[in-house]
Design a protein around this nucleic acid. Sequence first.
DNA 1: TAAATGACAGGCC
DNA 2: AGGCCTGCCATTT
Length: 123
Amino acid sequence: MTEGFSQAVYRVVMAIPQGYVATYGMVAQLAGRPRTARMVGGVLHRNPQPGVIPCHRVVFRDGSLAPGFAFGGPGEQQALLEQECVRFIAGDDSNAGAAGMRVDLQQCLWDGRMNGSEEQHIE
DNA sequence: TAAATGACAGGCC
DNA sequence: AGGCCTGCCATTT
């Protein structure tokens, strides 16, 4: 199996707790390859185990999502994140105006730290 | 076997 | 501040 790296990526993505998001670069680093952010996305696109790997929790370094390459739909990914209590920045509050909907990495960026147990409970 | 591609990231203009 | 270009590295054909 030459998918050792893919396996690591799946494991990391699956370890992302609810309400949190991780960047491709972060996942890559946790997977053991700090410079393979592109690979992470490629792996998720190749074999996104449906229902097993929450690829919607993986976002860009800017907090943006993959444009047009979502698993079920560009809006679907964002909706899922909102469903997990992930805050979104609409660039409407009190900050630099104008800024496509981005995930609030300031609050929901995963620390790469697990919750003690090695498996999270998905309701 | 080698070359091209690709769900990114960071730096530069 | 925003947009463009290049670099990195594993997988695929």
